[in-house]
Every structure is written in structure tokens, then in C-alpha cells.
Design a protein around this nucleic acid. Sequence first.
DNA 1: TAATGAAGTTAGACTAATCTAACAAATAAA
DNA 2: TTTATTTGTTAGATTAGTCTAACTTCATTA
Lengths: 219, 219
Amino acid sequence: MLTYTEENYLKALFKVTFGSGSNEAGTNELASLLVVKPATVNDMLKKLKEKELVDYEKYGKITLTIKGKKIALEIIRKHRLWETFLYQKLEFSWDEVHEVAEQLEHIQSGKLVDKLDKFLDYPEFDPHGDPIPTKKGEIKVQYKKTLSEISVGKSCKMVAVKDNSSPFLQYVVKVGLGINNEIKVLSIQEYDSMMLIEINGKQSTVSQKFAENIFVVIE
Amino acid sequence: MLTYTEENYLKALFKVTFGSGSNEAGTNELASLLVVKPATVNDMLKKLKEKELVDYEKYGKITLTIKGKKIALEIIRKHRLWETFLYQKLEFSWDEVHEVAEQLEHIQSGKLVDKLDKFLDYPEFDPHGDPIPTKKGEIKVQYKKTLSEISVGKSCKMVAVKDNSSPFLQYVVKVGLGINNEIKVLSIQEYDSMMLIEINGKQSTVSQKFAENIFVVIE
DNA sequence: TAATGAAGTTAGACTAATCTAACAAATAAA
DNA sequence: TTTATTTGTTAGATTAGTCTAACTTCATTA
């Protein structure tokens, strides 16, 4: 059985390595994500290596083992299922679910996860549009771009957000955006890449930073 | 903010003191309930005294302060609401809910508790028949006896169990008993206090120990 | 290729929660 | 009332997770 902290390291490691090509991470990178000092990460890596959850040599890069990746996916599965529960059943708002799910994801009970999955009718995506790993650890990889990659005149559909922080999500709502909304790019300012977009007939101007955190698909 | 462990001490303290007349507890008593050594309890009591959650003098008895009692009731409220959720919504069985609720009760989110309460339509009792404290910390005290106190020929209604352990609860189910069942005491064996009872027309024989762990009311 | 800065490691310390073993106080029994 | 037993306390040690400060290795670039 892993501690709460160990689980968080695996989850963070999965996040930084997943889809990064090499699947490798560095000590500082992990430390900044977990908001601890590199020294602390270093100590923990020794422990995780001992438990065969990470591959790691002194001064080398860090990767998850199969075993470590499996556990990370289970935690992400729990996190996203709980987010879905909070949003769909308890009427939490979009920006409130993450923080509580951070706690709920560590509850240990295989039965609970399965029952929750069933209760929610086996959802494929969480409220932020992120795919929920299956019981077997399969994760749906959606072909998606960021809004900032869409060119003038084109339309797309918002499918997820990259940044899960409360301030960003509240801002997204304020702009009138939500999952599955159609977005049309009307114009892009040359100078600062500010984007004029249209959602449900309503126009808004968003910054490049904003557009980089909205995931879309072209239909 | 309290640690997981501190919360467990307050909850245990509430359990041993509540309704015990004096509302006092001893170090050994607490230690055995929490399955730690008396020395450990002693250390923790100093910390809880520092935080003004318990009243306690060296070699004296332990009592909860108003503040400590309030927190204990909040934890019990969460525990029982989660038990109700697991039982009613996720189809957990009677004997499985306690263990998972032991973890869920420590999730920190005022909003979550309120939303869960609403989602469950403000239940008054958990699956074991124990009253759920209100948001204000009010707890319904039900006038109840144990089955062992009922005399021959009398009838009563089961309202709760005293022992929440899985083996006991499974045994209760096996005997054909459940919350709100009518029980008629047909006879009591003089020698060992074995009880012959009738539930829904079905007869069963139960031990005194068993009967002491079933709470009933006389209508 | 040697200097410099970034990345990573080590040693030593701290806190929380626990233990064991020895001791002290209170209470019950002789 | 003295002794024995139960109950409670203290001191010192351990483990997990964290820190700071000093050090080492790696990588870039002049």
C-alpha cells in the first residue's frame, strides 16, 4: 500500500512524462509541480525506485515503470470520476471540483471506484473534457489542438481545458465558453495575437495565453 | 486545520464519553479504542489540550471542550452521511460501508458535506440506524433499549445496531434481521439467556451477546 | 577546452505520530 | 495502613516527509 504522498508523486510523474515523447522527467521539474524542493523529490525517488515504481539512476532521467504507470492511471481515474460525480450529481461548479477531487482520489477501495463508475453510467470524460482511464488503464487519446492554433475564418469545437485552476475556469465561464461550444475565429491581432472569437453569436476577445489553454477539435 | 489523526482522537473521545454520564475518559480506554499505546495517547492529549480541544490535567480524566465536541460531531456527521450515500446510492451492503466511510469522513470541504446532505434528501439515520448530527451539531437521542432487555412475550422494533463490525452485521443479516423489523421474544433460556425470537414469522435463536448488540424500541 | 550556470545530490535538522521500557501515581485489596 | 495492581507519564528511539545549505555533476558557450 502506498502513502498519500507517494501516490501524488506517481501522479505528477505521469503528468509530466505522458505524451512528452521521451516519457522522461527531471528532479526540478517534478519539484516545481509538487511544490516541494528538489532535495525532497530526490529522497522520494529513492523510495519509489526501491518499490520498483520508477526507473532512475543518479544524475539520470526519471521514468515510470509499468507498475508505476498503472498506479498513476488508477489515481487519475479516481480523480476524474470524482470530479464527474461532484459536477453531475452534487451540482458543484466547474472550477470547484478539482480541489475536492485531489482529496477523494486517495480513498482506497476498489469497490468504491467501480460502483462510482457504474453510478455515473461509465463516463468517458470529466467536466474539464479530460478522458477518464478505464478500469484496465486505457486512456482515450483525443486528437486535439489549442484554440491558438486555429486560423482566421475557421470554426472549431471546444473539448477540454489545459489549465484546471479555479481562476482560469471562472474566466472561461465569464467569456461564455464551455465544453462542446462552437467557436469561430473572426480575427487575430498581428501585434499581440489577441483573438476575436464568436460563441453562440456572442463576440469576445481573448489573449494568446487564454487561447493556448483551450483545447478544440476541428470538425 | 487538524490532521487526520487528531480528528480520529476527537471522534474516539466523543464515542467513549458520549452518554457515559460523566463524559470522562481515561488514557488506557482511548488507547485500546484507537489501537495505539497509552504513551501515544498521552502525547496526543498534550497537543489537543494546547489546541483547546480537550480538558485534561496530569493523572486526571479527559473531557472534550465545546470546541472539541463540535469538531467530533462534524466528523461523525460526515461519516454517517457517507455511509448513507454508499448504501443508498452505490449499493454497498450494510457491512461494507463503515470501512470506506472511515476514510471519507476526513475529506475537508464544507460544501461537499452540505451538498451530499441535500443529495441524500437530509437523512436522519445512517444504514445502521444511528442518528446523523445536523449541520448545527444537533444529534437526535432516540429512546432505545437492547434486545436483551425485552421480556418474554413482548414485541419490539429493531432500530439500530451497537456493534458496527462486518462479522456481526453479516450475522445479523443471516438471522434475517434488519432495521425496522418487528421482533417478538418467544422465550428465554434460563441457563444461558439464549433467546428464541420471531421475525416475519420466522423463528431464530440468538445468544445474549447478540441480543445486547441489537437496539430496539417498544411501540 | 575551460568557465559558468543549471540541475541534481548529500548531510544534517525538524515535526508528527508512533513505539518500548522504565518510572510514578492512584486505587483496590489484604 | 501497607502492599499490590492498575493506570498514567516520561524519556529516548524510529519512520515518513519535509526543509536548508553546501556540495557535485552535467551541459552550454565563449
